[in-house]
């Protein structure tokens, strides 16, 4: 049976990980699921589905929030950081710096939970690393 974002939201809302992370998942009108992880409730993860993938996107900051003279330094730092972050990559989407992951549509629920928990942690690590370059 095909998994929908609604199914996923229901399962996430009743899950607690071994590390004690809980999830608050809502499917928005635009067809994107917004997930707040209890280990990082300030930076929600946005989940979207294509025919083959589940995309998890965490908005980090807008390019306008970067100190003007630090943009090149920030981009270099992010490129260097990206390979070191487990399961997530860093991208730029319409002026927004994002942390994102992609999973196969038929991945297990346990893998999705693990990915989200790690992504929420990664978000904090990345933001801590670049904090001084933001306004």
């Amino acid at each position: 049976m095909e998994t929908t974002l609604e199914d996923l939201a229901l399962d996430l809302n009743t899950t607690t990980t071994l590390e004690g992370t809980r999830f608050d998942a809502v499917v928005t009108d635009s067809g994107v699921m917004e997930v707040i992880c209890s280990n990082n409730d300030e930076f929600p993860i946005h989940i979207a589905m294509t025919d083959t993938q589940i995309l998890s996107v965490t908005p980090l900051f807008h390019v306008k929030e970067v100190q003007e003279d630090k943009l090149v330094e920030l981009n270099t730092l992010l490129l260097q950081l990206s390979p070191a972050i487990p399961l997530s990559s860093i991208g730029l989407q319409e002026g927004n710096y994002i942390l994102f992951g992609a999973m196969a549509l038929n991945t297990t629920f346990e893998n999705i939970v693990h990915e989200l928990e790690v992504q929420a942690e990664n978000t904090l690590d990345v933001l801590e690393a670049v904090e001084d370059l933001l306004i």
């Binding site: 994107v32 917004e34 946005h46 995309l55």
Partner: peptide, 10 residues
């Protein structure tokens, strides 16, 4: 799909 997530980000 990424655009959809970005629109909510904006």
């Amino acid at each position: 799909e990424l655009q959809k997530t970005t629109s909510s980000i904006s």
